[in-house]
Design a protein around this nucleic acid. Structure first.
Length: 876
RNA sequence: GCUGGGGUGGCGGAAUAGGUAGACGCACAGGACUUAAAAUCCUGUGUCCCUUGUGGACGUGCGGGUUCGAUUCCCGCCCUCAGCACCA
């Protein structure tokens, strides 16, 4: 054994040994309990960032912990390798997206190896490889058969200058990210998946995962699905046989309706164009344009609208109402039409105020009902949006909102002009992307047969080797005639392939099922294999995927269940959303920009608090902030540099110790020093003892010195505590426990050469326990120490070592210090045996000298004894 | 605006079926070792007060409440982070 700890040497040695032996490759074993530990797969950008390191350190710690408990752990990784950056690189640098992607994957795989993450590399997958995306296409065709995939007109962001479609992110602020041109909305035929068919189940299924998923993720999904209960009501358009159907959650307010407001695209406009004045049509077009302008968060557009001149009849009151077009009504929510009740809806109120429409209050607060019934008109300052008692509503007067809602919906249903209804905010999932670097949608358009699915046996529809990447015009795929032209599978006539590719969220919706059976050529995976490995016990990733990815994958699972591929409803039992990794940044207002740390001089007070920060060059003040790591802010750190400098073990310990996993993690170099120091302490201690520990007895001796007893107690207490911590999903507190154990080992001051049998046993037990419990955090050093300790090259897993189990007798304290309070204030402590009865504890407390000072001459009202914890003497 | 988190030392954070607040680490200060430095080891470190002790008071965002006892439970605020947002 070398005297000095060299992280580089040890880590390299074990990474090579693990790889050579395929230690982490996993097979189905029906005799063992399985554990599927999954981390969100990375996009192969080329460099790992600290967020990845944190994510994979968490997953790896958990995988090791479960392996050491004897579970059959599946811990795979792959690449989310379709997507825009590869195509962008092709446009800007002229490289082939495939080559660019593969290069990046190779680099990042090496980085992951250097971190020593225990992946089963034999299961590695990548979305851009035909073996994988073949099954994106397979699923698409299946969903087409099931009626879950369909095509319809939909709007996309379009930059007229670049002649290309843009994603919402690329069109943020309403301008093209590349050229700054104002983005237009364009209507295209796009493919959709009917996720809305599963809206109710996606909502209801949440009770199966409650407790295992963070509350906020479930809430976000709930909000996203946006279930809303109400009613559809038909308003007949006068002089026509048409009806306008509105959706409302407040049917009880219907007597207060002053107008019907429809979205500009509403069919009632199209159907009655002849009856509309030309200036009205012009206004409607204007309003539609306004509405189509993308807006930033928080930006509210002023209400605008126009009276179409059409009239519709309120089926409850028989009142004739004007039909307006309004910019605040959206075609794709509800029915694209609302009844405007200004007295009881803020938006309608604002609209009515602006256009001078009548405002009638029909819901009253209970104590004002009488007053409201007397008065014809009331001047409302603002909309009254709460529920109450109906007034000015004919037959329904005096009813409570809640009852009226139900009864009025039933009435509408009975008289055939309405229905109770549930609507959702959730839209069907549009998967068409006008991009090259994605899975081609397997459809051929034929003039005679229409949109024809590519037969299953012809899958995959492969991407061409290359395409003209100009960044302008249509999708590059459309410019590859060999790809586009294909015979119609139905009639054999000339056909053209769909040139849109699939949203990359399709890949991520099911990728982790492919790990189970990555070489299957016929099916995405064998259902029997999936029956063993899935569902996922623990999924770990960023909270930024709380809605889209995690909702899509839940949807996909339910579809797979309906296909008979899996037998459960929810794919992920437990979800852990880790916090962001942030760094300290330095902003100079003087120079209007961020500056690197080494250009800043920081002064601290005697406690270490920053008192002053100035630029070294010109002494101008600097603002110190903690922000998400980024190159432009000079506050990022490269994981590779860190690993090179401190070693993977230390980097991983710090990533897990510095903060609870769901919190933000502030990356500090001084913090990582602490992790290095800890590892060195462990190594030094081990070095000092390792030869002597070979003489330690294998069975428990009868006698122990006082120091050995103390050490054994601490060892078993630590095992107990760390096991509990792991079980409750804590990753930072076990490190603290290990440090305490290591400190206790140091406190047992005894020369190894003078150690008695009992001492040797106690130290060896502590060392073994420490190594095994530290393995999930720092596997390299632990493997090394284990090899030296046991003399076996097999490694911790192969030698079937197990996570230590606490002996309750040793974990039990032999003497307790019981705090004694007088009237709730801590006044003294007494020593007591853990077996002391409440009566004995009370006696001890009252006999205590300091307590007697307080109780002398006072009346003791009562004494509260909390077994093993505390005594409180209440005096008067 | 709606929804959901979160406010504990100089910092990251421990501790909640109500029971010693501040574990562990960082930073800082002092000491040992050293010709010196680094490394290492030891000690101290919530605030305030005094008669410097095995002392006292205060202290978990603020104000109330319940309780022998509240960081933990209840009520009302303030601040902050995140997601969503003209959703009818």
């Amino acid at each position: 054994m070398e005297e000095k700890y060299s992280a580089q040497k040890i880590e390299k040695k074990w990474q090579n040994r693990w790889a050579a032996k395929g230690i982490f490759e996993t097979r189905i074993d029906q005799t063992k309990e399985k554990f599927y530990c999954l981390e969100m797969l990375p996009y192969p950008s080329g460099r790992l960032h600290m967020g990845h390191v944190r994510n994979y350190s968490i997953g790896d710690a958990l995988s090791w912990y479960k392996r050491l408990q004897g579970l059959n752990v599946l811990h795979p990784i792959g690449w989310d390798s379709f997507g825009q950056p590869a195509e962008q690189a092709a446009i800007q640098k002229g490289v082939n997206p495939r080559d660019w992607t593969e290069d990046n994957i190779n680099q990042m795989r090496e980085q992951l190896r250097r971190l020593g993450i225990s992946y089963d590399w034999s299961r590695e997958i990548a979305a851009h490889r035909p073996e994988f995306y073949k099954f994106d296409q397979w699923f698409f065709l299946k969903m087409l058969e099931m009626g879950l995939a369909y095509r319809k007109d939909s709007q996309v962001n379009w930059c007229p200058k670049c002649e290309t479609t843009l994603s919402n992110e690329q069109a943020s602020g309403g301008v093209c990210w590349r050229c700054g041109t104002r983005v237009e909305k364009q209507t295209r035929q796009q493919w959709f998946l009917r996720i809305t068919d599963y809206a109710e189940e996606l909502l209801g299924g949440m009770n199966q995962i409650e407790g295992g998923w963070p509350e906020r993720v479930l809430t976000m999904q709930k909000n996203w699905i946006g279930r809303s209960e109400g009613a559809f009501i038909d308003f007949a358009v006068t002089h026509t046989d048409q009806k306008v159907r509105v959706f409302t959650t407040r049917i009880d307010t219907i007597y207060g309706a002053n107008a019907i407001v429809v979205a500009p695209e509403h069919p009632v406009i199209e159907n009655n164009l002849d009856d509309l004045a030309p200036e009205v049509i012009a206004r409607i077009q204007e309003i539609q344009m306004e509405q189509a302008q993308p807006t930033d968060y928080g930006e509210e557009i002023a209400k605008d609208g126009v009276d179409t001149g059409l009239k519709a009849v309120n089926p409850f009151s028989s009142e004739e109402l004007p039909v307006w077009v309004g910019n605040y009504v959206m075609i794709d929510y509800g029915t694209g039409a609302v009844m405007s009740v200004p007295a009881h809806d803020e938006r309608d109120f604002e609209f009515a105020k602006k256009f001078g429409l009548p405002i009638r209050q029909v819901i009253s607060e209970p104590h004002l009902v009488h007053e409201h019934q007397q008065m014809q008109a009331l001047a409302l300052e603002e909309a009254f949006t709460e529920e109450g008692i109906l007034v000015h509503s004919d037959y329904w007067n005096g009813k409570k909102s809640r009852d009226a809602k139900r009864e009025m919906a039933q009435f509408a249903e009975k008289h055939d002009f309405g229905d109770s209804a549930v609507t959702y905010r959730l839209r069907d999932w549009g998967i068409s992307r006008q991009r090259f670097w994605g899975a081609p949608i397997p459809i051929i358009y034929c003039e005679t047969c229409g949109a024809v699915p590519v037969p299953f046996e012809e899958l995959p529809v492969e991407l061409p080797e290359s395409a003209p990447f100009t960044g302008v015009g249509e999708s590059p795929l459309a410019k590859v005639p060999d790809f586009v032209n294909a015979p119609c599978p139905q009639c054999g006539g000339a056909g053209q392939r769909e040139t849109d590719t699939m949203d990359t969220f399709v890949d991520s919706a099911w990728y982790y099922f492919r790990y189970l059976d990555p070489d299957n050529r016929m099916m995405p995976f064998d259902p029997e294999v999936a029956g063993y490995w899935t569902p996922v016990e623990q999924y770990i990733g960023g909270v930024d995927h709380a809605v889209m990815h995690l909702l899509y994958t839940r949807f996909w699972t339910k579809v797979m269940r309906d296909m008979g591929l899996v037998k459960f409803d929810e794919p992920v039992k437990n979800l852990l959303t880790q916090g962001m990794v942030v760094g300290e940044s330095y902003y100079s207002e003087e120079h209007a920009g961020y500056v690197p740390q080494d250009e800043v001089r920081i002064e601290r007070d005697e406690k270490g608090k920053i008192t002053k920060a100035n630029l070294k060059s010109d002494n101008s003040p600097i603002k110190v902030a903690v922000e998400k790591m980024s190159k432009s802010k000079f506050n990022g750190v490269d994981p590779d540099d860190m690993v090179l400098e401190y070693g993977a073990d230390a980097v991983r310990i710090f990533a897990l110790f510095a903060a609870p996993v769901e919190n933000e993690l502030v990356w500090m170099e001084t913090g990582i020093d602490g992790a290095v120091r800890f590892l060195q302490r462990v190594y030094r201690y081990f070095y000092r003892w390792h030869e002597h520990l070979q003489n330690a007895p294998s069975s428990e001796p009868d006698e122990f010195s006082e120091g050995a007893r103390k050490l054994r107690q601490k060892t078993h207490q630590t095992i107990k505590r760390i096991t509990e911590n792991f079980e409750s999903g804590q990753f930072n507190t076990p490190v603290a426990g290990l440090m305490e154990l290591s400190n206790a080992m140091g406190d047992f001051k005894i020369e190894p050469s003078e150690a008695e049998t009992g001492d040797l046993f106690a130290v060896r037990e502590a060392v073994e326990s420490l190594i095994l419990m530290l393995t999930p955090y720092a596997p390299h050093i632990c493997e090394e120490l284990w090899e030296i300790l046991t003399g076996s090259e097999e490694g911790i897993l192969t030698s079937n070592a197990r996570f230590p189990v606490a002996d309750p007798d040793w974990a039990r304290a032999d003497e307790l210090e019981i705090p004694v309070q007088v009237n709730g204030k801590l006044r003294s402590r007494v020593k007591a045996s853990p077996d002391a009865t409440n009566g004995e504890l009370e006696e001890l407390a009252l006999a205590d000298e300091k307590i007697r000072e307080y109780t002398d001459g006072k009346q003791i009202v009562k004494v509260i004894v909390v077994p093993k914890r505390l005594v409180n003497v209440v005096i008067k």
